[in-house]
């Protein structure tokens, strides 16, 4: 039960993240979401009695919950963007849409085959699919490059959660490799955002269409 609670709370954090245009709040919601995922991994390790997952949880906590969030917070402060005005869909409507996506994920995950040894297998699938969909929706409805990074990170969380609960996780080295990739990707994109801001005076990706020629 506590497993379901944690895992669904992380999906809920992602939904709540969609609802606000404040980049700072978005990052804080993201870090709560990864914190919950780290806790889920701990509980998972306890239930499955696999010690490698404890290490995984610790790495998630250090890299994603603390490292990436703090880096992104610093970045927003540095480039001085506080608010994402959004694209075609207003933020509140996008949030309600992502609640509907959560229902959709629930229906979808009920049809998945039993793979995990956990009783309450469907919640993991629900949260995983919902995180992936919510991440895409987040990227769709945002204008700033930094929000695109956040949406991408949310999707990555979803894939991790799905793999963890549906296939009992990947080998430790693969996971570690992915973490390293994500870490490097965020660092590089942070650098890029910084450069884009420097040369274009904004980080609005919808305005980058003028570069297509």
């Amino acid at each position: 039960m506590i497993f379901t609670l944690l895992i669904l709370s992380s999906a809920i954090m992602a939904v709540l993240m969609v609802g606000t245009g404040q980049v700072r709040s978005n990052i804080i919601f993201y870090s709560f979401q990864t914190l919950l995922i780290a806790l889920t991994t701990c509980v998972f390790a306890y239930v499955e009695n696999e010690h490698k997952h404890y290490i995984l949880a610790l790495v998630i906590f250090i890299v994603k919950t603390m490292g990436l969030s703090l880096f992104l917070l610093w970045l927003t402060k540095r480039i001085g963007t506080a608010r994402d005005t959004g694209t075609f869909l207003p933020h509140p409507l996008a949030m309600h849409l992502s609640v509907l996506l959560l229902i959709f994920a629930q229906i979808l995950s009920c049809q998945l085959p039993h793979l995990s040894k956990l009783e309450d297998f469907s919640a993991g699938g629900t949260a995983g699919i919902s995180l992936i969909l919510t991440g895409i929706l987040f990227m769709l409805t945002r204008r700033l490059a930094i929000s695109q990074v956040l949406g991408f990170l949310t999707m990555e969380n979803g894939i991790f959660l799905f793999a963890l609960t549906q296939a009992s996780g990947m080998p430790l080295f693969v996971e570690m490799g992915i973490f390293l990739d994500v870490f490097v990707a965020v660092m590089i994109s942070g650098l890029l955002i910084f450069r884009i801001k420097h040369s274009f005076e904004h980080i609005d990706v919808t305005l980058l269409t003028s570069l297509k020629d």
Binding site: G19, G21, H91, P92, L93, H96, V99
Partner: peptide
């Protein structure tokens, strides 16, 4: 304000 109130509806939906 609508952005804030939307959270109430989201809670209700949850």
């Amino acid at each position: 304000c609508p952005d804030f109130i939307a959270y109430a509806l989201t809670m209700g939906m949850f």
